[in-house]
Design a binder for these strands. Structure first.
Length: 433
RNA sequence: GGAGGCUUCGCCUAGUCCGGUCUAUGGCGCCGCACUGCUAAUGCGGUUUGGGUUAAUCCCCAUCCCGGGUUCAAAUCCCGGAGCCUCCGCCA
C-alpha cells in the first residue's frame, strides 16, 4: 500500500499515476474520504475512552455512598465506548479496503501507454542466422529426449511436462549456474517454501485483481506461490532490518505455480507458458532512496546471466499500463526465439519501492534511528523452463544437437554439445572417490 | 492426529494463581550528562511501537503473540486462532 501521508499531500500525483496505469483515479478520493472519516471517528472514540478510563478508575476509590452513581456513569460511558469502537472498526476496515485498492505510484520515468508501448532500451547480441530450417524448442527437446509434454498432460494435465535425461540435467545445471553467480555477487542463497499463508500473498500484492492467477489450497488456507518473491518478501515481515551495511540480498530457489487463467490458446506448445516451473529469483531490501540504483543493479545481474548463456536479448522499459500492482517501475529482458522470429520475456525486474514493505510491515532504521518502511525489489535470475526452451532454440544445430554455452559446461560434464542419443554419463561431472 | 507447557516494551526477566495508580519490575545493551590525564569503573537521566492533535512541544488513545468475550475496569478471567518446546502416534 502506498504512503497515506503522501496521498494526503499529493493527491494529484496519485491521480495521475492511476490514470497512467489505466486504473480508476476516483479511488484516490474514496481513499481520502475514508481517511478523513476514520480520523474523525478515531478522535471521538479516543476521547470517550479517556473519559471512561477516568470514570472506572474513580470506582475503586469511591465511598459506599458515591459508588452506585459512579458505577452508573461508568456503565453508560462503557456503552458509548462500545458503539464508538464499533464505528472505528468499520472506519478502519473501509480505509484499509480503499487503501489496498490503490496500486503503487509509478516512477516519473515510466513510459506512458499499455502492453505494446514498452520502450526498448537496448538490444544486445547478434540475432543468429541458420542455414537450415529451425525447429522449435519442443521438437528439439523431443529429439534429445529432454522434454515430454504428452506424458506431462497424462499425469497432470495441459501445460505440465516432464524434463527427462538431458532436459533434467539442464535444469540442474542452470540452477547451479544461477545460484553460483548470485552467491559470487554477494546474495544469500535461499531455498524457499512454495506454499504460503494468505498474508504473504496479499502483502506482495498477488491477491488483488489478479487472484485468479493463483492456486489456492482451500483445505489448509494456503497458496501456491507464483514466484519465490512471495516467500522472500514475507521472510522479513514484521521485522526491523539492519541495512546499515547495504542492501539485504537473497537468491531464492523455488517451484512456481501459475493458473494461466485468461491465457487460453497462448503459447500452448512446449514449455514457454506452463502451470509449474522452477526459478531462481533475486530479492533485495534497501532504503527507499537507493531503490532506483538497486533496480539497475538487479537488471545488470540479469543481463550478465543471459550473456553468460550466450543468448541475444533486448531490455525493455515496461509502460505504465502494463505494470504490476506493486511495481513503480519494471524492466523485462526478452530473449530471441528463432522459431518465433521474435523476442520473448525471459526475466523481469520490479522496483516495488515501499509498497510491499508497508503491507508486510518491513522496516529499517534510518540515519536518525527511526524505523521506516524499506524498499523491496525483485528480479528473475533464471526461470528455468523458459530458459531451457530458449537455449534449445538459439543453440540448435542442423542435426538436432544443441551447443552448450561455456558457462554451463562445468555442470554438464564439460560437454560442448547435447546430441540425440548421447550417453548421459558424459553430461555429468566426473565422480571422484 | 492426541496430551501438556510456553509467548511481557532490542535481548533476558518480574508480574498472571486471587482483575483495580501495571501510567509494566529488574538486568543487559544502547544514547546523553557528570566524574576522569585517556580508557575502564561509578553515579544520574533517558531508551517499545502505532494512531490522534499540534507550527513544534505538551497532551490524549492504543499496544503484555493475534482475534473475540465477560466486567465500571483485563498482561491477569473465558472462548477461538497462530507460533515455539516436550511427549505419544504417523512419516521421508
Amino acid at each position: 500500500m502506498i504512503d497515506l501521508r503522501f496521498v494526503r499531500e499529493n493527491p494529484d500525483a496519485v491521480r495521475a499515476s492511476q490514470r497512467a496505469r489505466g486504473a480508476d483515479e476516483s479511488l484516490v478520493d474514496v481513499l481520502l474520504a475514508a481517511d478523513a472519516e476514520r480520523r474523525e471517528v478515531v478522535k471521538r472514540a479516543d476521547d470517550l475512552r479517556g473519559e471512561q478510563k477516568t470514570a472506572s478508575q474513580a470506582v475503586r476509590g469511591a465511598s459506599a455512598e458515591e459508588r452506585p452513581a459512579i458505577l452508573e456513569r461508568a456503565k453508560a460511558l462503557a456503552a458509548q465506548v462500545k458503539d464508538a469502537e464499533e464505528a472505528q472498526r468499520a472506519a478502519d476496515a473501509a480505509l484499509r479496503t480503499a487503501h489496498l485498492k490503490l496500486a503503487n505510484v509509478i516512477a516519473d520515468e515510466v513510459p506512458p501507454g499499455g502492453e505494446d508501448d514498452a520502450v526498448t532500451l537496448r538490444t544486445v547480441g547478434e540475432v543468429p542466422a541458420y542455414d537450415f530450417a529451425v525447429r522449435d524448442h519442443l521438437e528439439i527437446g523431443e529429439l534429445l529426449g529432454a522434454i515430454d509434454m504428452e506424458r506431462g498432460a497424462k499425469v497432470s494435465g495441459a501445460r505440465f511436462y516432464f524434463l527427462t535425461g538431458p532436459g533434467a540435467l539442464l535444469e540442474f545445471a542452470l540452477a547451479q549456474l544461477a545460484i553460483s553467480r548470485a552467491v559470487a555477487a554477494g546474495f544469500v542463497p535461499v531455498v524457499a517454501p512454495a506454499l504460503v499463508r494468505p498474508e504473504a500473498m496479499e502483502g506482495t500484492g498477488f491477491l488483488g485483481e489478479h487472484d485468479e492467477e493463483v492456486y489456492r489450497i482451500e483445505r489448509d488456507d494456503l497458496y501456491l506461490v507464483g514466484t519465490s518473491e512471495v516467500a522472500l518478501a514475507g521472510m522479513h515481515s514484521g521485522e526491523v532490518l539492519d541495512l546499515s551495511a547495504g542492501p539485504k540480498r537473497y537468491a531464492g530457489w523455488s517451484s512456481c505455480f501459475r493458473r494461466e487463467a485468461g491465457s487460453y490458446g497462448k503459447d500452448t506448445r512446449g514449455i514457454i507458458r506452463v502451470h509449474w516451473f522452477d526459478k531462481v529469483e533475486m530479492f533485495s531490501f534497501c532504503p527507499p532512496e537507493e531503490a532506483a540504483a538497486e533496480h539497475l543493479r538487479l537488471l545488470a545481474w540479469e543481463e550478465e546471466f543471459l550473456t553468460s548463456l550466450e543468448l541475444p536479448y533486448r531490455v525493455v522499459d515496461i509502460a505504465a499500463g502494463d505494470l504490476g500492482t506493486s511495481a513503480a517501475r519494471k524492466y523485462d529482458i526478452e530473449a530471441w526465439f528463432p522459431s518465433q522470429g521474435t523476442y520473448r520475456e525471459l526475466t523481469s525486474t520490479s522496483d516495488c519501492t515501499t509498497f510491499q514493505a508497508r503491507r508486510l510491515n518491513i522496516r529499517f532504521r534510518d540515519g536518525e534511528g527511526k524505523p521506516q518502511p524499506a524498499a523491496t525489489l525483485n528480479g528473475t535470475l533464471c526461470a528455468i523452463a523458459r530458459t531451457i526452451a530458449c537455449l534449445l532454440e538459439v543453440h540448435q544445430r542442423a542435426d538436432g544437437s544443441v551447443y552448450v554455452p561455456k558457462a554451463l559446461r562445468p555442470w554438464l560434464g564439460g560437454v560442448e554439445l547435447l546430441t540425440p542419443g548421447m550417453a548421459l554419463t558424459a553430461a555429468v561431472p566426473p565422480l571422484t572417490a
